[in-house]
Amino acid sequence: MALSESLRKQISDLVVTNRVVLFMKGTRQMPQCGFSAQVVQILDELVPSYETVDVVRSPEIRDGVKEFSEWPTIPQLYVDGKFIGGCDIVREMNASGELQKLIGVKTSDPKTPTITISDAATKAFAAAVAEAGGDSLRLQIDPQFQHELFFGPREPGDIEVQVNGLTLLVDRSSAPRANGLSIEFIDGPGGGFKISNPNEPPKVKQLSAPELKTMLDRDEVTLFDVRPENERAIARITAARSLDAAGQKYLLGLDRGTPVAFHCHHGIRSQEAAQQLLGEGFLAVYNLKGGIDAWSQSIDPSVPRY
């Protein structure tokens, strides 16, 4: 398919008038493909504003830009009117620091993070390194704080961390997220490497009904019921306090380190409440998985199901 002159001009205008342009599937807020999402994530960290073109909404541009760039896939990144590449290339250039230079973001070299590795983990790593055949031990932490430990080749821009005689490579974008991190090794079934990262924002932790019961019995958590009065009239967990106006006032007066759990009917509304509470600065927030329904089924059958 030949690219029509008008379409060529349209695309050319887009990449000339905007400094950073990403042709992608979906929008910056709602990417519709994993590769587009990865590039958005990288750009979001580097540039406050950039132009995106949703090719799903414009099949003409979708075909046109492939021809224009002589590149068969989406996403496609342009900087200063020049085609940079697709997802793989953008990721690699981000990790090596080339992308930052190109866009003109001032980045000082990230500091070498401090990482602690327990003796057991050191031993396990050393054994694995011996089998890895020259590849290096790498640690990657994405913006959602998904941690990955794996063996891979050394990449440009890597930051080297020396711990207990081991060399750990961390890419530039992971490095600030790795500072203060510790790695343990837990033996036995269900064991393995365990990473604790103090930079990771707190998450809502899910509790099964028996887990919640144990914590309540030990007085380790304060439980709140987020359901309205009409539902509480049908069924309730004795230990749970209503999150009515008085309950909310009490909750927000608690020390931010107090472990707090929420429940509702099936665990959806309480999850939302728990999420919000993290925003208030609470550090240990739990949600009862399956709600009062799960409680009734596995802990207290005298609580009516509805």
Binding site: E70, W71, P72, T73, F83, I84, G85, D88, I89, E92
Partner: peptide, 17 residues
């Protein structure tokens, strides 16, 4: 560069895409 190398491969398989 990675861009040039990938372009060579995409060029070779363009008819399949």
């Amino acid at each position: 560069s990675m861009l040039e190398s990938q372009r060579m491969v995409y060029g070779a398989i363009a008819h399949l895409m």
